[in-house]
Design a protein around this nucleic acid. Sequence first.
DNA 1: GTGATAATGACGGCGGGG
DNA 2: CCCCGCCGTCATTATCAC
Length: 634
Amino acid sequence: MKHFQRCRKMWLASFARFITCLIACTSEIDRLAGLYSRIGRGWSTQATQEEKSFQTEMVVEIISSDDESETSLDWSSDDEIEIFSNSIAPFSGHVPKFTTPICESSSSWTKLSNQYLKMGFPSSMAFQAQHVPYLGEDRKHEDPVFNSILTYMALQKLPGDFNQTSYVPHASESARANHVDLFNVNSAPKYEAVNFSHHMGFQYDEAFNTKERCCNLKTPIEDMVDSIQGLDEAGVERQQKKRKVAGPIRSKTKTTRRKPPVIGFGLPRVSSAGISLTVQRDIPPRARGPPYFYFENVMRAPKGTWETISSCLYKIQPEFVDSIHFTAAARKRGYLHNLPINGRFEILPVPPSTIQEALPWTKYWWPEWDKRTKFNCIVMNNGWPNDMDGIARDLNNSGPNPPEHIRKDVLRRCKRYNYVWVQKNKVTNLKPREIEYIMGYPNDHTSLLRNDAKRYECLANAFQVNTVAYHLSVLKNLFPGGIKVLSLFSGIGGAEVALHRLNIPMKLVVSVEISENCQRILQSWWEKSKQQGQLIHISDVKHLTYSELKKLMQKCGGFDLVIGGSPCNNLSGNNRTTRDGLDGEHSSCFFDYCRILELVRDVGNHKQLFIRDYARVCGLHTFYSSGEKKKIPS
DNA sequence: GTGATAATGACGGCGGGG
DNA sequence: CCCCGCCGTCATTATCAC
């Protein structure tokens, strides 16, 4: 098996290289065509109908895991797709000459700026264009400038929170040497370039399509490889050889059960175009919506955690999704919900899918031996100056070709803290606005916090908007007139931003969030994005008692969606001191989520509540200690 | 008190090798 | 099947300067 896996990897890598060549041609044509056609007609304020329908067509549903009985679910998983995407070289490797870093304090108009002005770009943008490191004598590489300007234009014309005013660098950011912060690139949509993963998914699946295979993640990877074997006969020969040595693969899979992959029920960029697949998901009748619910938490929780979560939430199987399929950073999370899973679509614009697309200016100092194309999970600890200086010291002391052990150590630290290259041999961590961009939030969403550490904390605890929006997109047709949301553990409002990006009107949002900073951020965004509905803040889930909730629901007429990701502090692998599982101080709020969800459902259905219902929901856990017991009607 | 800086492993999945 | 090393992880806490 291991021989075969190695062989499979090699084969997939070679196939990826083939596709890369193919795409290098097609995407360049597409890109240029798109670029110049947009120059002609300008940017549309929103995605065109064609773009929308194309996106919709790309949506198919794929079964992600084996259909075993719920008693023998195995929540651990691996990611076959990642192997595929990671086998691709990060970028071409051609690094244009860039000798003089362009200083942000430069105020003179360059010839190029004037050219852009003549083309009709606003002066502010033309001015910013000269701050891009592509400029200089090597004029072959000015396309990225164009792209940046165009994305900025799209940004300016996007509705709602994406048409913020121009970015003025803070003093601290200005001091960030050589890091040319092409302001709105950070929050810019990515219309201009054909998304690589997107293409990969399309082409990859096309290969299946031509073989008339059902592209189904339930299909063993061996079959997938078989189905595209025609493209690489040599690979098949190698595979067959290995098989002879290693023995029949399928007989082995009977004894060693394949774990479900780290992807959910169909992902847009790893699915096939034009193949309609449906998913039969077993949701017990008593769990069906409305009201709908959506729960999120870390995938790599201590053993048994997701079994407990599932058993408390109607034994529905969670879908495990890595946001790496939606943006440039990994974020392995479990999502448990009773939403429909057919008819999902991605929100536009799609975010950049690689580091190089998200932060293009880092390419120039990016050493060829750093093969990263994706960030690891965005966490609170982003490294510290001493560590970054240490990397520079190590590399400077080791000459132009650092030895293997130095490279390995540097790479390990870069991966751990998501460092990016901003000078020769110099790295720095991601800045808050860059994280906002990758996480799918509007520019400066958290900027009212002056403390960067607090911003990092808020963002590390937030939803990845594109991923969540993909799941919530099915609500668009269900609630055309607007939706009433109970948002538990709202944080910085990932769910709200996602709904807004989906253009689903929020008639009412009751946000339960204990952090005042997060409340302020959500309130600020709510006003800034000119929401028409009502936003109510509640400070703590513990305050949302039966009587309070009943009062609330009588006033508003019930909720359509209960959404939230309970605190992960005691579940995260990063926690070295208090990783206590669901019994932990913070993570036990999960049981409050269950309690409130059940209340919403029962009050909404005008059911009479019994103590045994609470006991069922809460187990023998925290609920009875919160003083609520006395208020339970008997 | 606040903010910046810096240091602190364990756990579980995974894959290679015997 | 087991062992072992590698890898990644919505974090917490002590210390110091202001």
